[in-house]
Lab assay of single mutants.
Amino acid sequence: MTYKLILNGKTLKGETTTEAVDAATAEKVFKQYANDNGVDGEWTYDDATKAFTVTE
């Protein structure tokens, strides 16, 4: 299944996707991606759209 990450960081904005077996796996991938790019903020998840959002 495809999951999307929407980044609303102070220095990094954009979107990326990942293929994962479930939302928990996608969340781990996205949190590592955000951490690697220096984005740390409030996380939300919308199951209807399979989209995670992180806002700094």
Results as ranks from 00 to 15, higher is better:
Y45E: 00
V54D: 00
L7K: 00
A23M: 12
V21D: 10
D47I: 09
Y3P: 02
Y33L: 06
T49H: 10
T55V: 08
K31S: 04
A26F: 01
V21C: 11
F30S: 00
F30Q: 00
D22V: 03
A26W: 01
L7F: 11
A48P: 06
T55E: 06
E42H: 12
T18R: 05
V29Y: 15
D40I: 14
L7A: 03
D47H: 11
D22R: 03
A26E: 00
T17W: 14
D22W: 03
E27F: 15
T2S: 07
N35S: 14
A23T: 08
G14F: 14
D46S: 05
T25H: 12
D36T: 08
K13Q: 12
E15I: 13
E56P: 07
A23I: 10
L5W: 02
N35A: 15
K28D: 05
L5N: 01
K50H: 12
T16N: 05
E27V: 06
E19G: 05
T55H: 07
A26S: 02
L5P: 02
L7E: 02
T49P: 03
V39S: 03
D36M: 12
K4F: 11
I6S: 04
A51C: 15
L7Q: 02
G9N: 04
K10R: 13
T25N: 07
T16D: 03
K10E: 08
G9P: 03
V29S: 05
T25M: 11
I6R: 05
K13G: 05
T44N: 08
A20V: 04
A20Q: 07
N8S: 08
L12T: 09
V54Y: 03
T44H: 10
G41D: 01
E19Q: 14
I6V: 08
A24P: 08
E27K: 10
E42A: 10
M1E: 12
E15C: 15
E15F: 13
T49G: 06
K28E: 08
G41Q: 02
T18A: 07
T16W: 15
A24V: 10
A23S: 09
A20N: 03
M1I: 14
A34Q: 01
D22A: 04
G9Q: 04
L12Q: 08
G38N: 10
Q32I: 10
E15D: 05
T25I: 07
T11M: 11
T17Q: 09
K4G: 03
A20K: 03
F30C: 00
A51K: 09
G41W: 06
K31V: 06
N8D: 09
T55N: 09
E56T: 08
D46V: 04
K4S: 06
V29E: 07
T49K: 10
L5R: 00
T16F: 15
M1N: 13
A26C: 01
L7M: 12
T17V: 08
V39Y: 07
D47W: 09
G9V: 10
Y45K: 01
N35F: 15
D22C: 05
K10I: 14
D40Y: 15
N37C: 14
A51N: 05
D47L: 07
D46W: 03
T16H: 14
L12A: 07
E42V: 14
E56I: 11
D36I: 10
E42P: 04
F52M: 01
V21H: 12
G9D: 03
V29G: 04
V21A: 13
T17K: 07
T17D: 05
A34R: 01
T55S: 08
T2P: 05
K50I: 02
K50R: 14
E27H: 11
T49V: 07
K13D: 05
E42I: 14
T18P: 01
K31C: 05
N37Q: 13
Q32N: 07
L5A: 02
Y3F: 13
T25D: 09
I6C: 06
W43I: 03
V54A: 03
D47C: 07
V54H: 01
E19V: 15
M1L: 13
T11F: 14
D46T: 04
V54N: 01
V21M: 13
K10N: 11
T49C: 07
G14Q: 11
Q32L: 09
K13I: 09
A20E: 04
A20I: 03
E42K: 10
D22H: 04
A23F: 13
T18C: 15
T53V: 06
N35Q: 15
N8T: 08
V29T: 10
T53I: 07
Q32A: 12
Y45S: 01
T44S: 13
K50T: 03
T18N: 04
E15T: 13
G41Y: 03
Y3N: 02
E56S: 08
T55C: 06
G41H: 01
G38Q: 07
G9Y: 07
G38H: 09
F52R: 00
A48Y: 11
F30L: 05
M1D: 12
M1F: 15
T49L: 12
